[in-house]
């Protein structure tokens, strides 16, 4: 487990967060979920590395509060 970068890479993290918020503003729950699913596919392909993708899946699958 070492290829996934979890250090912040955005020069302005607030702006990146807001971009994600605004993408779903005024969307229904179903439409927002569909948006997120497409985003996952687009970004996974952009990364193009199965090891990184597997690490990201593992991190996202950890229950909240579990130690790391």
């Amino acid at each position: 487990m070492a290829k996934l970068v979890t250090a912040s890479r955005f020069a302005n993290p607030d702006a990146a967060y807001v971009a994600l918020v605004e993408a779903r503003r005024n969307l229904s729950d179903a439409d927002a979920a569909a948006l997120d699913t497409k985003l996952v596919l687009i970004l996974a392909n952009h990364i193009g590395d199965l090891d990184v993708l597997s690490e990201a899946i593992a991190l996202a699958s950890e229950p909240a509060g579990s130690p790391r």
Binding site: T6, S8, P13, D14, Y17, R25, D29, A33, L59, A64
Partner: peptide, 30 residues
């Protein structure tokens, strides 16, 4: 926008950032 999400979808995004924050620096910065 972060403190008061406007919709369930925005709240899920916010809560995901909070859940990842202890584990990933990029999320803490958000």
């Amino acid at each position: 926008d972060f403190m008061s999400p406007h919709s369930p979808a925005e709240r899920r995004l916010r809560d995901a950032v909070l859940a990842l924050a202890p584990k990933a620096e990029f999320a803490r910065r958000m």
